[in-house]
Every structure is written in structure tokens, then in C-alpha cells.
Design a protein around this nucleic acid. Structure first.
Lengths: 348, 348
DNA sequence: TCCAGAAATGGAAGCGTTTACAGACTGCAG
DNA sequence: CTGCAGTCTGTAAACGCTTCCATTTCTGGA
């Protein structure tokens, strides 16, 4: 009961194992009657094929690995959600590798878990892999898709962080701000995580292009959480005299932290302080946060779809001599500039 | 390269397949020299055992399924993080089933994915399973652990939601509040999700025990997010006259939504309005939120440890006739009442 | 030196499927 | 009536490991 094998089904249906297998997996060349018989017997016995046996025999795993640096931050949990939904709909399993910030875990995931030939493909989120790491992954002949991180040699889905950060900064500049602070991400959080640097570069580029100096004391970093940004924004805003008139935060959560800090000082947003974020966090609405909306969930879903297509098209079983996977494509995911009311002209 | 089989390793090491297998999996009765030889050859060839083959042969999957209703809400992502860390450390994979609120997905996960004999065990978070569903799962002879949800017949890890909700309410009552509102969870969000009802029952019990009527218009429901609670707290606080003096929210995120709403109305917390939450969300600190701290991450880690112990102790391969899994234990996870400064005596 | 017992080894039988292959059966054109 | 393409079926060979069991090689005490 519950442990019936295909043999039991075959016996019960009065068919051979092969026919039952074909019938249940929807293959051609099975008479309607046999198919019916097999299905009925399988139902009665509660038969579910053993995935290991089936994978071993067919070379297909129906399992995709997802590597994320964290699961708490908005961006990552959104991506996971998108990937998960698409995979589940396709009958695929999702194996989650929450690498976190511990380097040894990163190492074991990359050098052990991912290589166990148990995954049809790997999706890596915001993970910067070295060339040799990518080679290693491609060596097991599995497609890789990167989201939000540059993966040389693998397909990627990303937004143009540098340009968007520039756009956000230019929005503030366009309103007349010149005293602009930037909340960036912690570098030490995860050595892999290049994104904060890219966004900051966009900020700095825009400032320089407009002829404004970037004041180092106005570039502070937090851990991408509301609470983290709150603390550092308080420091930023503490000096009543030389206070910035606008803040560009590298994520919506950090922008919200800044808004909360501003409120503590009695600063009105946007009259006294403009704040712009980046992400499209649902909570931004509550704060009327101006931001750049990126559909993280959609990015995850797209990544999964891309992989599924590759898998459907691709060779059944990675052959010993096959050249590494298909052409790497780099897609830019569409974003939307969302002007709400956390930004305005600077105070007189 | 990367696709070497154990046979290749054996050839290279000049040993038999059997010895190599024993050597690499750390079994006894292998000479130091052979072990060394095998390891060296495996390294050189980049050999990683095929998980399917190894699972098929050994009956061990090194893979635990985790079923969650969502991944966005604090509680769930914290649990996932806890489970993930513990499993990764033990060399286990985590297969994530993000069921969401779509019933058909719940169905396919429960009746298809989980039964594929690919999981050594299942952890279900806040999932209320029917008896037949539990039977079905136990029928495949895999241990199940429930977190935060009652699973008759399976081991569970939970907090005493009813009592804690009572405690939270009593804290407000003890301060002198009588006009207490409650923000509960959406029932329609997920039919499985009984927790909001339990917490509400605790609230109502405390109110009644203190001889105070529960005003139906002061029991409102939101979706467990800050933004959702914000909206409904605004409605709650809109009526200047008959306004509650305290709010007990069924989660910290919702309590924070209430605090934000209060600020919009110029209400000071805690002078004009006391707010108490429940969870121990990191963000609560920023708001000085009084709450009941439950270590969701720890609960996840504990669940994983319990399972791993069961698996280590348990029979290697579920036999056809074996009685369903070990004795179901029900553990209450410790919590901590965290008084910060969002609660005070009611205004005069 | 010999021998019992322990330690190490290799052969081979699974594990539960999928699928190539070949055989058996249909129906239909020649 | 024969032959042939087509459809359906079953046999058996993978898939790549683990592990039982029999065999060989070491031990160290007598």
C-alpha cells in the first residue's frame, strides 16, 4: 500500500512492465484499452513511480537547483516565488540552496551539492561565479541561468542596474537636488554580491555628469533591510546643518528605513527630504515611495521558463563528449519608473 | 571530465568498484592505502557519485521536502532559513514546495510531488492536513514533522498560540486597557491556515475572562503584511470618537502596519495608542514594538534536526510491511515576552 | 611455523524504472 | 492469398551505484 512498484501494476493490469510504463508516461503506441487498464491499476494501487529509478533510467531529473544568497530580502524571496511557481506548474521540483553569507557553505554548495548530477539545471541569483566555477558547472552539462548577476558563459536575466541607478539619481538632480546621499549595500555581506557597487557606480556617474561632487560621508552602507538602513540614515540625518536634501537608496527597503529615520527627526518627506528607492517592494506604496519597479517575481518565472525550454529542446542525457550548453543569451528585463510622492523639489 | 563514473575511478585506482564505493562513502573495512588511492583517483577525475543511482541502490535520498504556504512572510522565510541551514550542514538537499494560495497547487504537491518517493522526510509549515492526507504521507513510510500547525499523527513543533495571544491581551488589560482592537489574519488567504483563528480565540478568551466585551467592529483582518494591516488599521482608527486605545495584532508585521497608520493620524505610540504584536520580527526593534518573540528560524532548525535524528536512527529502507513512522511527539518551542515601548497605560 | 579469526577485497545481485529491439498481430493493397 | 507497412506488445539490457556474500589476505598468539 503506497509502495507498489510498476511490477505490481503490471501484474494487476495483466500487462507487461514496459507497456505500463509507456501507458503511464503518456507515450505513443499504446492501445486505448491498455492505457486505461494501466491507469486504473495504478490508481487502485496508489502507484507513484520512483523518481530515482525513473531518473536513472531516463536521464531526466525534473529538478532544478536554485542558489540564492538569502531568502529574507524582498528581491530574493520574490525571485524564489517566481521560479517556484513556474517549476511546480511544469511538474518540476525545486531544490533550494540558501547559501547565506558563510563562505564555506558557498563552497560546499558549489563544489558538492550542485555537482551531484541530480539537477537538470541551475539558476543562480545574484551570484558571481568565477570562470572556473562556471566551467565546473558546465562540465556536468547542465544549463545555468543567472539572475541579477553577471555569469560569463551562462545565460542571464538582469536589469541594467548601472543605468537605472543613474536614472534614479538624475530624477533627483532634475528636481534641483545637489545635496544627494546614497545608501548602498554592505560589501562584506557577501563577496559575491556585486550589485551594490554597480548601483553606486551609477549614482556616482550621474552626480559627476551633473558636475556635483560625491561627498564620501554621504555614501553610507547598510544590509538591505529596513532596520539596517534606518540606523545608518539616522546618522546621516543627525547633523542638522550639513544635511542632504535627498537620498537615493539602493533598495526600497533601505529607502523605507530612510523615510522612517527622517520622520524621527521631524523631517517631512518629500518637503524636507526626497527619498527614492529601487525595486518595487509592495510596502513602497504605503510610503508613497518613488522607485524603479523591477518585477523580481517575473524575473524568476522567466528564468524558469527559459530553462524549461532549453531542457525540452536539449538532448536527453548529457553525453560524455557533448560540448557545453547552448548559446548564452543575456536578456534585460523591463522595468518601470514609478513616480509617487516621496520626491519633490528641494526645500528653499 | 566531470562525467566519470565509479567504474572509471576503480580502474584508475586499480581497485574494484565495491572497494571504491566503500572508500568514498567512508565505510569501515577499507585499508588506509585503498581509501587514499580511491580518493586520489576520484579527485583527479572529478568524480561525484550519481545521486539517483546511489539513492536507488541505498534507499536513502538525503533530501527533505519542505512545504510552505508562502515564502514572503517573515515567519515562513525564517523557518525556511532555519531548515535550510541545518539540512545543508548535514549534506541534505532541501526541496521547496511553495504551495501558495492556489488550491490546485496544494493538491498537486500533496498528491503528486510528495509521493514520488524522492524525499526522506517532509516538513510541513502551518499546513493543516486532513487525516487521509496524513495517512497518505505516512503510507510512503516517511516521517513528517509539522511546524506551527496541528498534524494529527505526526510530530509537531509549535508554540502555544492560544495561550500566547492570551498573554499578549492580558498585558494590555493589565495596563488598564479595555478598548482593545485585534488585527487578525485573513481566513480566505488559505483555508489551511488556522493560526489566525487560534490567536483570535486567545484574544477573545482573555477579553471575556476580564469581563470586557469584544466589539466585532474592532476585530479586523489583514493579510499578515505591513501594508495590508496599515490599510485596515487606518479604517479602525479613522473614527476619532470611538477609537480603541490598544491594538493587539496577530503578527509583528501587522502591528507595524498599525503603528504606521497611527502615525498618520497623529496618534503617538504608546501614549495615545498601545500596540502589541507577536513574532519577534527584526523590524520590531525599530518601532520599539512590544511583542512575543518566537524564534522561527530556530523552530525550522529544530524540525530539521528532529528529522535527521529520526532518519539516522530509522530503518534504511521503508519495508513493504513496516508500520508507519515512530511515535509522534509534540514539542512546544520556547518563546519570550519582549516588552519594549509600544505599550503603556491608556490615555486619560 | 601454523592456524584461527579479523580485515580487506572483488564478484555479482539487486534497486525500479525507461527504452531499444524484436516479435506478433492487424488491415489493406497488390 | 501473399506481402508489407503499421501498430501494439513483451523481453531484456541498460542506468550507476550499494551491499551481500564468498574469497583472499593479514594479523598475532600458540
Amino acid at each position: 500500500m503506497g509502495l507498489a512498484g510498476i511490477k505490481d501494476v503490471a501484474d494487476r493490469a495483466g500487462l507487461s512492465i514496459a507497456t505500463v510504463s509507456r501507458a503511464l508516461s503518456g507515450k505513443a503506441n499504446v492501445s486505448a484499452k491498455s492505457r486505461q487498464l494501466a491507469k486504473a491499476a495504478a490508481d487502485e494501487l496508489g502507484f507513484v513511480p520512483s523518481y530515482h529509478a525513473s531518473s536513472l533510467a531516463s536521464g531526466r531529473n525534473h529538478n532544478v537547483g536554485l542558489v540564492v544568497p538569502s531568502i529574507h530580502r524582498w528581491y530574493f524571496s520574490s525571485v524564489v516565488e517566481g521560479v517556484s511557481g513556474t517549476l511546480l506548474d511544469a511538474g518540476y521540483d525545486l531544490t533550494l540552496y540558501n547559501v547565506g553569507d558563510r563562505p564555506e557553505r558557498r563552497h560546499s554548495v558549489l563544489n558538492d551539492f550542485l555537482l551531484r548530477k541530480r539537477l537538470d539545471a541551475v539558476i543562480a541569483v545574484a551570484l558571481v561565479l568565477s570562470e572556473s566555477e562556471i566551467k565546473q558547472l558546465l562540465a556536468i552539462h547542465r544549463p545555468i541561468v543567472g539572475i541579477g548577476g553577471a555569469l560569463a558563459g551562462a545565460s542571464t536575466i538582469r536589469i541594467d542596474d548601472a543605468r537605472l541607478a543613474r536614472t534614479a539619481t538624475e530624477h533627483l538632480l532634475g528636481l534641483g537636488h545637489t545635496r544627494i546621499a546614497h545608501i548602498t549595500g554592505d560589501a562584506e555581506l557577501n563577496q559575491d554580491f556585486k550589485l551594490p557597487g554597480i548601483r553606486r557606480a551609477g549614482f556616482e556617474a550621474a552626480m559627476q555628469a551633473a558636475g556635483h561632487a560625491v561627498r564620501p560621508e554621504w555614501v553610507v552602507s547598510a544590509d538591505f533591510t529596513i532596520q539596517g538602513a534606518y540606523v545608518c540614515a539616522r546618522n546621516l540625518l543627525a547633523a542638522a546643518a550639513g544635511r542632504p536634501t535627498a537620498v537615493f537608496a539602493a533598495s526600497d527597503e533601505m529607502a523605507i528605513g530612510a523615510i522612517l529615520a527622517a520622520r524621527d527627526f521631524g523631517l517631512r518627506v518629500p518637503q524636507d527630504l526626497s527619498v527614492i528607492g529601487m525595486d518595487g517592494h509592495e510596502l513602497g506604496e504605503v510610503f508613497g515611495l518613488t522607485t524603479i519597479n523591477q518585477d523580481a517575481r517575473g524575473q524568476g518565472a522567466l528564468a524558469a521558463r527559459v530553462l524549461l525550454e532549453t531542457l525540452d529542446a536539449g538532448a536527453k542525457r548529457p553525453a560524455k563528449g557533448t560540448p557545453p550548453s547552448a548559446a548564452a543569451t543575456d536578456r534585460e528585463y523591463p522595468t518601470e519608473f514609478l513616480v509617487r510622492n516621496s520626491t519633490a523639489v528641494p526645500p528653499a
